[in-house]
Write a protein that binds this DNA or RNA. Structure first.
Lengths: 349, 349
DNA sequence: ATGAAAGCGCTAACAT
DNA sequence: ATGTTAGCGCTTTCAT
């Protein structure tokens, strides 16, 4: 026996169907759904019964067209494959969908072509707001996102020189804490594995690195720096460079600008016979899941990615809901230094 | 000096604006964009010039309402944080966006509530098709996705008993090849770290495991099986069980139903002093990035995730474009056994 | 408290 | 080859 109430229906019910069954006008149906308190108790009951009976769900296109808002937000990610973002997106998703917003994910994937298409989409009024996790205001070939007047919020990577609400962790301070931890352990020669040049995260973390060194009366300019780009491979290269250094100058500790490079470093150094943390201590940044799975487990700065996403989403909702342009306020999210097995006291010389 | 052509415009241009400037009717504008070949060369030029001048982008809500299609596909993922999916999504995204479709990502995240909302969304006609990467047809509290008649395609995890197009790798065959590799290396006692019970991927991979054993005249029923659920922690547990086994029965090789469990196993076994691959060989399944980063690098079955996504998207496009329901055809994507450092000849007894 | 009706921006059938 | 026009489903005045 099949269930007749759910089976086989073809076309979705529309508001007129509900109105007919409830014996009211379409206006009343609309009101019942949007402002239940303004319709009479009795009427409301009939309408809601009809909604259930027909399985009515408002057509978003019709609503968007008329109400001039799509209840959709565009979330721009530089690269979905980066293990940092999924968890941020979860926070974003939870918060936005709880407020009734849908999400369109724009995965830039290093394509200017795609980027431009998303700008077009946004400027054409297809979304109610834009959340930038990509470190820059996306640029179109012809249209300009800022000129559209659309609410914009940035997170993860700070965008300098834009007066929009932003959410970020204090990268400089967190880096300084990580390096101070190494100094506390007795390390005096500490190396830095860098992120991409001119990247704002690299700049802030490098600053924190220098600050912690200076606080211990060490000279940042003498600290060995290894070029990098946030990839595992860059960590491997840094390790090879490190291995080639003479004992006298080789750092006993490394601060990597992110976890993937730290893990690449550890793997290559160990493969060449170096012991971690006995011969070299290392601390990463981000707190990706794998930092707790690798061997040895990685001391790192944990970023509460879900919180970052949720906070940014909340700011965006505020901007989309409020009639006037939001004050460009900054939200700072706290990080945690996770002490694990990749750091230990400096070897005695 | 500011750029007047892009700056400061507020309201997006609509089709009527373009028509006015090009001195044609709105119908001609619409046609020029949809079927350029049916309008006169001369007219087309004027229209396109006006489009550029105004920065016109069609309003999707208007189009969706009228044309009764949204050019949006719903892509359902069980868990975005799972490192397997981002690369699949890239393939999906490339193919769908090349065909002009947008994507809404439904991250189920184990919430029946969310699942139901996405069913509502789909059944209300807000999307033109649904791509299921989650191993089941999503279920709503009241509405039924199948009854909506919407095009549906499944990938990654096969959905049994549904006559919809599906894309998958031959899990059974791939698993059999992986295990045959271990047998070729001289292993006779081979263990299996399982996925979640009743999971279709686990069932298929377990079948392949058994098939390879039987082909070598070994008895699958005597092969040690370790319970698991695809998580890193499950691999750790399996390793502890393995370490506790007496030498006489302890397997010299392990086939794990996925990479994360394999990596968890390796880490824990090594931490307890076992050498990989000298004391135990292990092969994983999936070919996630980290399988090539861990120590030792992991022998595994590589699934071309991007291809899987692209193929599934192509099938969905076909289903959304064709007027009649698609024949429920199966696409099989080939896998590759990646030989790396976690497998070696069985130790002599 | 409820209803009638206009119209959001677009496409497609029909007319010229 | 091009124009006119009727809605797609919904919200929101404005009347009642």
């Amino acid at each position: 026996m099949s269930r007749p109430e759910t089976g086989g229906r073809r076309k979705p019910a529309k508001i007129a169907d509900v109105a007919r069954i409830a014996e009211v006008s379409v206006a009343t149906v609309s009101r019942t759904l949007a402002n239940p308190e303004v319709v009479a108790e009795e009427t409301r009951k009939r309408v809601l019964a009809a909604v259930t009976a027909t399985g009515y769900t408002p057509n978003l296109a019709g609503r968007a067209l008329r109400a001039r808002r799509s209840m959709l937000a565009l979330v721009v990610v530089p690269d979905l494959a980066n293990p940092f973002f999924p968890e941020v997106l979860r926070g974003v998703d939870e918060t936005l969908s709880a407020a009734g917003y849908g999400i369109i994910i724009a995965n830039l994937d290093n394509s200017a072509e795609k980027e431009s298409r998303y700008v077009d989409l946004a400027c054409a009024g297809q979304v109610d707001g834009v959340l930038l996790l990509c470190g820059h205001v996306i640029r179109g070939r012809v249209r300009d996102l800022r000129a559209s007047g659309l609410p914009i919020v940035a997170a993860c990577e700070r965008i300098d020189g834009e007066d929009i609400p932003q959410v970020e962790v204090d990268n400089e301070d967190a880096a300084a804490r990580a390096v101070a931890h190494l100094i506390d352990l007795g390390h005096r020669r500490i190396g830095y594995i860098a992120g991409p040049e001119r990247n704002v995260l690299d700049r802030d973390r490098r600053k924190g690195f220098g600050r912690a060194l200076r606080a211990a009366r060490l000279d940042p300019r003498k600290a060995p720096a290894f070029a990098g780009d946030f990839t595992f491979r860059a960590g491997e290269r840094a390790a090879r460079d490190w291995l080639a250094m003479p004992d006298a100058t080789r750092p006993s500790a490394i601060f990597a600008a992110n976890d993937e490079m730290a893990i690449g470093f550890v793997k290559t150094a160990r493969a060449a016979g170096a012991r971690v943390p006995d011969d070299v201590s290392i601390v990463g940044f981000d707190g990706i899941e794998f930092a707790d799975y690798c061997e040895p487990t990685l001391t790192t700065i944990y970023q509460p990615r879900r919180d970052i996403g949720a906070t940014a989403a909340a700011l965006l909702i505020a901007a989309m809901t409020s009639p006037k342009p939001p004050s460009p306020r900054f939200e700072r999210i706290a990080t945690r230094l996770m002490l694990r097995d990749s750091t230990a006291a400096a070897p005695k010389r």
